[in-house]
């Protein structure tokens, strides 16, 4: 009987602790914000270092490999912002992939100093017989 009471008390306490952890993690560990969330309250993030998460907009990537200037657009399909980043793009960086950029807004442009990849959970081997991208191959060999 005593053990049963302890058992029930234990489960209740663990449940409360769990709910609190969940709440704390949910509110304070917002790892990144989405472009539309920034757009809704730009003043809240003014002059603050933020992480912006979204997808690399198709057709928006421009990379100047002489000066390591990377420019692209980040989107959550509601709101899109231009991003500039100094440095070479990571290996998995490409159009349509998930990314998290760290930095701050200057006007409507996001100045990023760290570019992280948040890739999808889709894993598949390359398709056989896919034509080789000759241009990419030439670029690599140069």
């Amino acid at each position: 009987m005593k053990k049963l009471i302890y058992g029930i008390a234990g489960v209740v306490i663990l449940g409360i602790a769990g709910a609190l952890i969940y709440k704390a993690l949910n509110s304070s560990l917002v790892y990144f914000i989405l472009p539309n969330e920034y757009a809704a309250h730009p003043d809240q993030y003014k002059n603050r270092r933020i992480r912006l998460g979204g997808l690399v907009e198709a057709g928006s990537v421009k990379y100047d490999d002489k000066n390591l200037q990377l420019a692209f657009e980040i989107t959550d399909s509601i709101k899109t912002y231009p991003v500039t980043h100094v440095g070479a793009p990571p290996e998995l960086f490409k159009e349509g992939t998930g990314i998290v950029v760290e930095g701050h807004f200057e006007g409507q442009t996001f100045k990023s100093d760290q570019l992280l990849i948040k890739h999808s959970e889709v894993y598949k081997p390359p398709v056989d017989g896919q034509p080789i991208d000759i241009k990419m191959l030439k670029d690599t060999l140069q």
Partner: peptide, 9 residues
């Protein structure tokens, strides 16, 4: 449940 850098399952 949260926004993470770690990929989803």
């Amino acid at each position: 449940w949260f926004r993470t850098l770690h990929p989803s399952k």
